[in-house]
Design a protein around this nucleic acid. Structure first.
Lengths: 134, 134
DNA sequence: ACCTTGCTGATAATGATTGTCAAAACCATT
DNA sequence: AATGGTTTTGACAATCATTATCAGCAAGGT
């Protein structure tokens, strides 16, 4: 049976409070800094659960960390992520969906899943970078 | 200056000899099993170099490992990877390229890079899976 | 209130990757 | 062929994220 614990709620809340993708470690630190005595292992478990139930989205940063984010919808979708500030925009990718399916089918592949994420610098960070580069 | 060492050649050779993506660890074991006394750290360094110069492609498996593959071209392209046997097909993705650029631009993002990879079961593995499921 | 059983959390364990640094190898030069 | 300045190597330690362990606590049904 699935139980309701304040820890699970805390993790969900911390995720919701965040705009972009966060690492499990960062989430744990954040919770600790607000005084929560939640354990690191529990954060990992809660995140895995949320990802399983579709309440959260997970992806791998190019550096190899697992990042998580509260999902506004549980439809399948992709992300545009600022590599500097972590700002995330959910994007529609119907074109990519069908393309992925096509390509897989053409090559005899089945059970196709895909990883499609775009990393870049958001407008704000671009401006900052340009300013500091001067 | 960049020097030519047999170790670098060995890594490149081992990559070329492989059809799919391989982890650095696997490559190291493979080299060892052929009698090469190459060090693990050196394999990592060689792979990083190859990836830098565009001679190899790297991606993160869903499990978080870094995988490498010899690249037949150094054009930008993507992959269709069998999650069972590691077979890899290089795919053209012009549609996705432009889509990624569009999406990024529309949201004010610059310096857009993207991670686009399709995982699935190749025809052979699909057949095997179906057979064993019976 | 009680009891069963899942959940928690401190810590150890794991596994991949990177840093360190002395010794060895490379390449141009003598 | 010997020399010298540098780069590269490789064994091992260090790091980092994540997972396993396991005893104690707590949630929910009865």
């Amino acid at each position: 049976m699935k139980r309701n614990t304040w820890q699970r709620e805390a993790v969900r809340g911390a995720l919701d409070a965040n705009d972009g993708f966060v690492s499990a470690q960062a989430l744990h630190s954040a919770l600790h800094s607000t005084g929560s005595p939640i354990g690191l292992a529990t954060v990992y478990r809660a995140l895995a659960d949320l990802a399983d139930t579709g309440d959260a989205d997970s992806l791998q940063s190019p550096e190899g960390e697992s990042l998580y984010r509260a999902c506004s919808t549980n439809d399948h979708h992709h992300h545009l992520i600022c590599r500097n500030c972590g700002l995330t925009v959910e994007i529609e990718a119907d074109a990519v969906e069908t393309w992925a399916k096509d390509v897989a089918a053409k090559n005899g592949f089945t059970a196709a899943a895909h990883v499609v994420d775009v990393f870049g610098l958001c407008a704000a960070c671009t401006a900052t970078a340009a300013a500091s580069a001067k």
